[in-house]
Design a protein around this nucleic acid. Structure first.
Length: 458
RNA sequence: GUGAUUGUAGCUCAGUUGGUUAGAGCGCUGGUUUGUGGCACCAGAGGUCGCGGGUUCGAAUCCCGUCUUUCACCCCA
């Protein structure tokens, strides 16, 4: 047998104590805010039924799903013909019936659909768990990563949108991030736009294209549209709308005027108006965070109402979170008309930003406070009972695990940033020598005095 | 899934047009200091050059495959 370098599968990571501390700090800040607004946690299994996952994400999503091979002799349950068949999709359901969750929305939908009779609606939950995607890893993108979702399910009230926006603002402020904007749009505004310019069938394409404006620029987007049978006049109208600046009211009025001229439903615009009015009512400072952005599309997902995305002002590099309202969350599971709104905080990107800005706590004082020098077997009765005494009084204490040279033991304390070292007194077993690593100072104490000193210091 | 890119000591990296025994810094171990850490000096250990095949008298170096890394696209957090 040859020795093989142990390695991790593509796109997954180990997290050391510092990384975990960073993440738990972030999660703590988030959940504190969520709970203040009445959200409670939910956890669901890593594994879901493959059939459900596939139903939700369709063809393109399929290649991003991690599938779990059935246990035992999965071969015996398949027919030879299916193996010879070039279409792997026929064989797959026979050899794999489970998969790893791809996001936290499907688990939510499944949970709501199966437990709706026990839930009190509107149902508010947050969920912070890893998800898995068989994507090719890339900068800041992994095959296993945390998602942090919060949703309100079961009401169409626009107060949800207001509440979500407040939570976003409070969360980012509590993290020490203030230079962000919440881009706001309404999915039905986009639907109406393509309808007016008579390209209603191209809504998905249209959304996917204008979503790229940030990345490839307005001119390139216009070129793509024009190559796809959008007329020059229409493109100009869109451009005017997208680039229209002014107060929120100005922007909304401009769009509303255009809709009225074309005899279109203006309720989506009024929705945004109301949301902003409410926010303004609570505190004008809050509405200042909002930026109406008619180019925001949020991919080709299931959103049907207001949509939002958080970006840093003046910095490129992806959003820190996004979400919006959806009307058909549980429809595939036989539960119709469950409107809801969800928002997902981009944990990984937020951590990245916070690390770059040094907004995260360092783990310096997390570990052992006191190292007890190991003087060998004969000293164990004294040393071990001292350790027991100290640790029962909540002092983080450890003994060097081998009776080696003092130099080595002190060096261990030094490298692990342990601030105090205790050595036996060479005259009396009733006294101990406490050494402060930062200045080398040594003082003789009794057991009780040691505790007093340490408790006062730590 | 498409197109590029990377891989040499525990870590970060040198290594000439293919040429004897593959180097440095940091880290590690030991010593100067035989019970007192950081600093300094001295010494030492540690590599089948990602893996497999090919070209060649000869390959870390050139070619092919494969895995891995990073990046762009698709899509997305």
């Amino acid at each position: 047998m040859s020795i093989q370098k142990p390695m991790l599968p593509k796109g997954v990571r180990d997290f050391d104590h510092q990384a975990i501390l960073y993440r738990s700090y972030l999660i703590k800040q988030c959940t504190t805010v969520f709970q203040k607004y009445g959200f409670l946690p939910l956890e669901t299994p890593a594994v879901e039924c493959l059939a459900l996952l596939q139903q939700k994400y369709g063809e393109e999503g399929d290649q991003l799903l991690f599938k779990i091979l059935n246990s035992g002799d999965f071969l015996s349950k398949t027919s030879k013909g299916d193996w010879l068949n070039t279409d792997h999709k026929k064989l797959l359901p026979q050899i794999a019936e489970k998969g790893l969750r791809y996001d936290l929305t499907l688990p939510l939908a499944r949970y709501v659909a199966t437990h709706h009779h026990q839930l009190t609606f509107p149902f508010k939950r947050y969920q912070i768990q890893p998800v898995w995607r068989a994507d090719r890893p890339q900068k800041g993108r992994y095959r296993e990563f945390y998602q942090c979702d919060m949703d309100i399910v079961g009401t169409k009230s626009l107060l949800c949108e207001v509440e979500i926006l407040l939570i976003i603002i409070h969360t980012f402020e509590s993290l020490g991030i203030q230079d962000f904007k919440i881009q706001l749009n309404h999915r039905k505004i986009l639907t109406t736009l393509v309808k007016i310019i008579e390209h209603a069938d191209k809504e998905v394409f249209f959304c996917a294209t204008i979503d790229k404006i940030d990345k490839i620029g307005m001119d390139n987007v216009c070129k793509i549209l024009s190559n796809n049978h959008f007329s020059t006049t229409d493109i100009q109208v869109l451009k005017n709308l997208f680039q229209y600046t002014g107060t929120h009211t100005d922007q909304l009025d401009y769009c509303q005027q255009y809709f009225i001229e074309n005899q279109q439903d203006i309720r989506p615009i009024q929705d945004l108006q109301k949301i902003l009015q409410h926010l303004e009512m609570i505190n004008p400072r809050y509405s200042a965070y909002i930026a109406i952005d008619y180019t925001l599309a949020r991919g080709l997902s299931y959103y049907t109402g207001p949509i939002m995305e958080v970006v840093l002002t003046g910095e490129q590099g992806g959003s820190l979170g996004g979400g919006g309202r959806y009307d058909h969350l549980t429809e595939n599971f036989g539960l119709k008309d469950t409107s809801g709104i969800g928002f997902s905080f981009g944990i990984e990107r937020i951590l990245h930003v916070m690390e770059a800005r040094k907004l995260l706590p360092k783990a310096t004082q997390q570990g052992t406070q006191v190292l007890v020098i190991n003087d060998g077997l004969k000293a164990y009765p004294i040393i071990l009972s001292l350790m027991d005494f100290l640790s029962h009084h909540a002092v983080a204490v450890e003994i060097y695990l081998e009776a080696v040279r003092l130099k080595k033991q002190l060096n261990y304390a030094h490298k692990k940033n342990i601030p105090y070292v205790i050595m036996l007194h060479d005259q009396s077993p009733l006294f101990f020598v406490l050494k402060e690593m930062k200045n080398g100072q040594q003082t003789v104490y009794t057991k009780e005095d040691l505790l007093h000193f340490l408790c006062a210091k730590i």
